[in-house]
Design a protein around this nucleic acid. Sequence first.
DNA 1: GCATTTTGTCATACC
DNA 2: CAGGTATGACAAAAT
Length: 776
Amino acid sequence: MLSLKKYLTEGLLQFTILLSLIGVRVDVDTYLTSQLPPLREIILGPSSAYTQTQFHNLRNTLDGYGIHPKSIDLDNYFTARRLLSQVRALDRFQVPTTEVNAWLVHRDPEGSVSGSQPSSGLALESSSGLQDVTGPDNGVRESETEQGFSEDLEDLGAVAPPVSGDLTKEDIDLIDILWRQDIDLGAGREVFDYSHRQKEQDVDKELRDGGEQEDTWAGEGAEALARSLLVDGETGESFPAQVPGGEDQTALSLEECLRLLEATCPFGENAEFPADISSITEAVPSESEPPALQNNLLSPLLTGTESPFDLEQQWQDLMSIMEMQAMEVNTSASEVLYSSPPGDPLSTNYSLAPNTPINQNVSLHQASLGGCSQDFSLFSPEVESLPVGSSATLLPLVPSSSTSLNSTFGSTNLAGLFFPPQLNGTANDTTGPELPDPLGGLLDEAMLDEISLMDLAIEEGFNPVQASQLEEEFDSDSGLSLDSSHSPSSLSSSEGSSSSSSSSSSSSSSSSSASSSASSSFSEEGAVGYSSDSETLDLEEAEGAVGYQPEYSKFCRMSYQDPSQLSCLPYLEHVGHNHTYNMAPSALDSADLPPPSALKKGSKEKQADFLDKQMSRDEHRARAMKIPFTNDKIINLPVEEFNELLSKYQLSEAQLSLIRDIRRRGKNKMAAQNCRKRKLDTILNLERDVEDLQRDKARLLREKVEFLRSLRQMKQKVQSLYQEVFGRLRDENGRPYSPSQYALQYAGDGSVLLIPRTMADQQARRQERKPKDRRK
DNA sequence: GCATTTTGTCATACC
DNA sequence: CAGGTATGACAAAAT
């Protein structure tokens, strides 16, 4: 069993990741909804239902990105979500080839497999230099992600090798099913968690019988997956298809799988999705890009991160990365971004991102650098200085003080006239080494922002579309597990009914044995209108309803002193199936309880033991004080009924006091639980808000870059027009005006005047002062 | 046995 | 005012 689990988590899921990497849609959600109870039990082990730990783990990992409201392992959770979202991003074909390549590149130096697997055809010819860049000082979260993936890839390598298929079809199917089940159980997440998996491995190692051959298993599983998922590639769905063929397909090599996948999967723009570096290089020139430039672009990417990146290249990288992002969001947006005509002086001058294919290139580049954040952290100084270079190229005439003919005349003035004066002012006044050009400054800022944006984007596996989808899923999730919606108002309202929404939704979604049996007695109990939580407590209530017996109190006292003794009471076994207060049962209920069979399997003593331990202190106290009704009633009954109940019995002062304490504590307990859930919910909502804001920021930045680009184009055009007009002007003697002495100026009414340069300078200075003051 | 997380409880404020 | 909820703080229990 355990070894099976190991194989599932290690091999199959990793292969799934691999498939995702190459674009096969692996819809985990499909598997999430389909539950295969026995297998779950196999994987989790029969005792999983009895320990809170696993229960929490289950909840946390159930769907790969779910989270138990009470388990605020946010870091893990976010990491897992990030990873999963990235994987999901892959399955939607929106994955930039970069990432795929990046991971594969990372893979190589780790020693092993993918690099040494020619058949996989996935290993890029990553140089060791590339690997170095993947170094330690990543951004915090990026490094997490990267490492997570690289680690996964490390294991992925173990899956990659083409397998010598010995397994029967049944085996494969079983593995397939188990694998799905594993995903159901959240292994998808755990697999990503390297340490976790490592731990698991350690445990499993002890129990493994050792006879099995892991690689074969994993490989077979991978194959099975590949085959089943091939079908998915056609349909776009990822449910594991029944393997139509027989052993022939079992022998399907990974390479063949990949080829098939390439053939079957609609890659859209990336139809020529490169399975290896050669295909990349082949694919790239096929686009509109001139081969020479391609080579230029590619060579540094492929050969590694040789330090001397020239500014151009960085600029290209940056732009293409941004384009990549834009493509992720909206292909049309990217088109707009790079809609500049081929002959556009801008793009030629600055080697701005060429029209299309650079995406792949830069993707590759990015990949080889092992993450954007690193790229930029590494080269940030250059990036900062980049605008200088670009602006210098952009406006070679910037130093206005010099009237040298070298600088194209008038451009400065024109810029000053054409652009807001403060911009020109910065250009003129701070002509120093820093930011001679206003646009440069803007661009600089933009790029720095963009850099951080890149970090964010990468760190979040950012893709607005995916993010929104993820958001939806997330919403539904939180709706399930957390009994509150986003808005505080609805939140409070839902909780007003004593956590009814949470428990009801959860119990309805995952009806467990407990709740089913509970509901019947619940109806008998007639605890009308009191929260659905109480239905899980019914057994205790039933017990209470039966009446209170002296002998019982004895036992209870015993059990209170020594809980273990309770276990030997046969009729108590089923009693107090859930002695905890409201929330706990609901949580248990909603959690992935193993199928009823598992519960039955569990030894009854164990169960009683467990249940006894589950008894709260107040319950023990209540029994000790011979309180004739259940804590459940004490706590959950409405005041009137509660008082009625109290009046029915002759209770001592101590008993009454205890009852009131129990009620108070019970209420407070629920309140605390609600409070915590709410807190967690708030955090999650905030996180979502942050994501939204990050998306907005990214979008705005892209727009900004876009605007700047068009601005630059216009500037360029105006400049050329200016030159043309100015060059044609002749004075009374038929001689051209000296650009050092005259300048063209636009008047407010649209007319153009030729004025002496001194005047123009003065005007420009005058105009630039105002906005500067306004700035301050 | 320790560190961390979860859960229960209390005190208090507020409704 | 009583009853209930919300929440910070603390400690016990669980992991």
